[in-house]
């Protein structure tokens, strides 16, 4: 995935059984953002793979004051890349679960 300066990782082990996953996001390189991010913390949140989109979460993070609205795309892309990787991995382990 492209280096966006925003890192997103699983906050818990993914066994591929739940549609909701816990993710943790933090800024690795503030210079890649247009606005100044709030604080210097890791933001943990849950994400429903079936019902939600990365844009939903990015928008809520901006509305909650974590990021400037000009960074909506970079936050959304960072989440989308990680979610795509999780879904790709789930596709691969699905036969083993069945």
């Amino acid at each position: 995935a492209e280096d966006t300066g925003v890192r997103v990782e699983l906050a818990e082990e993914d066994h591929g059984r739940k549609s909701t996953i816990a993710l943790r996001l933090w800024v690795e390189d503030p210079k890649k953002l247009k606005g100044k991010p709030k604080d210097n913390g890791a933001i943990e949140f849950t994400f429903d793979l079936e019902k939600e989109t990365p844009d939903d979460v990015a928008q809520e993070m901006i509305e909650s004051g974590f990021f400037h609205e000009s960074d909506m795309k970079i936050v959304s892309k960072s989440i989308r890349d990680r979610v795509a990787l999780i879904q790709w991995r789930r596709e691969r382990i699905r036969p083993a679960l069945q």
Partner: peptide, 27 residues
């Protein structure tokens, strides 16, 4: 300890914790 919780009006909960120094990229 130093956890902060922010709840968005849509109901999503964000829990903020310090990032360990080892996870931050050196500039």
């Amino acid at each position: 300890s130093s956890l902060t919780q922010v709840v968005h009006s849509a109901g999503r909960r964000f829990i903020v914790s310090p990032v360990p120094e080892s996870r931050l990229r050196e500039s």
